[in-house]
Write a protein that binds this DNA or RNA. Structure first.
Lengths: 219, 219
DNA sequence: GTTTTTGCACTGACCAGTCAGTTCAAAAAC
DNA sequence: GTTTTTGAACTGACTGGTCAGTGCAAAAAC
């Protein structure tokens, strides 16, 4: 009797049998199907049947791989923000290694953020839609995951201030949040309402804002 | 039932037929109930029964006043963005009347945006969550309503460029979107994750970013 | 007397999650 | 090397519950 299913726990293939890879592949298909549907319709409006159908698996398979619809979603969030954070960090590190300034690093991170959003627009949309919602089950997951991403920006700001490259007066947590927001919203808006613009145009506009080349006069 | 403090007089004469006062009051109660619930749970997860209960009216009343749940939501969107646009416009006009610069006007608009979000956090949350979703019934309503708000910012940017106060190189639509995004996200983040900060702190951080006082060096 | 609200029973669709059963490749037994 | 067993992965019909929207008579407000 192989009723072991359920949340059965971290049996997780462990042994590296051929079966392990298969399961991962199924999960990947489910992530991919879920991210688009949830971005378009929202979590509640997306049914498990739809996700299964788009992924090309049976509904039971969803429940074989995830304890619930909500858990599938939470794992998807962790997975996606992991990708983003990695990409931001790499941009910052590469700039540092190349001897660039901290402002250059921020600029590279803006570019990395735009690239990420262009590659995974659905994920970004879904993330923004859920981030500030209070009282949901996955609230704590989101908090952790947001902090991961914002922390990368905060660190570069902090280093910039230490290096005397950025004003000491800046409020690091608030500025980091504002920068992230600027990129997120500008990119989503670009995709949704001004798709004819190139990624370079968007990058240039944001870069100019970052470097204070919008206001011609300084008081 | 607690009166929705400041949620809008709604007695507004205008086009209202005779006897519209009572009905308007019921609608206002429903808006208020719906906005909080939908911000917290999303549109699909919020039931009409919940909305009616929180508003303190019978379910039948909801359907007497609105054709459907979706229509209630659409009217709510129009109503809310109307308030925001009005507030931004007033900030811009007041600054102009006082002989302020365009940068000062943008600064005043940032403040007005923050005030609005602090007053109606749920509405903002819900707006951001829905704005970039594609393929929903109210997509077209949102498009109109977004354009209304962004247009106010674009106009001030355009005037600023014309007056030689802002760089001619700025990309007006993209910059306007980025500014709006910066304010929205920074404000939501403030409310959700850094509520101990004062509105003045947030305003100062955004103002600094707008005026290019973040990067100390200019290339 | 007209408009608005109430209260409540009802329906039909829809949906998260379950479970008994199937598949198949690799391991064990022969 | 052939047969048998094992069990992880998967399937899809089914269940129990939920919810948008309806219908209507009576009460309340205007």
């Amino acid at each position: 009797m192989q009723k072991a299913a359920g949340a059965g726990g971290s049996k997780a293939g462990g042994g590296s049998k051929a079966g392990g890879g298969r399961r991962q592949a199924t999960k990947a298909k489910l992530y991919e199907a879920a991210v688009t549907l949830i971005a378009e319709q929202g979590f509640s409006a997306t049914t498990v049947d739809e996700i299964a159908e788009r992924a090309g698996v049976a509904k039971g398979t969803v429940y074989y791989n995830f304890a619930s619809k909500a858990e599938l979603f939470e794992e998807l969030l962790r997975y996606g923000v992991g990708l983003l954070t990695e990409s931001l960090q790499r941009a910052a590190d590469d700039t540092a290694r190349g001897g660039g300034t901290k402002v250059a690093a921020l600029d590279a991170m803006i570019r990395a953020g735009l690239d990420f959003i262009a590659t995974y627009p659905s994920f970004t949309q879904l993330y923004v839609a859920e981030l500030w919602r209070t009282g949901r089950a996955w609230q704590s997951t989101l908090l952790v995951v947001r902090q991961q991403a914002v922390a990368v920006v905060e660190e570069v700001l902090r280093e910039g201030v230490a290096a005397g490259e950025l004003s000491e007066e800046i409020d690091i947590p608030l500025t980091a949040a504002a920068l992230v927001g600027m990129v997120l919203v500008a990119a989503l808006d670009w995709q949704a309402f001004q798709p004819e613009r190139s990624i370079d145009d968007v990058h240039a506009a944001l870069s100019r804002l970052l470097q204070g080349r919008v206001g011609g006069s300084r008081v």
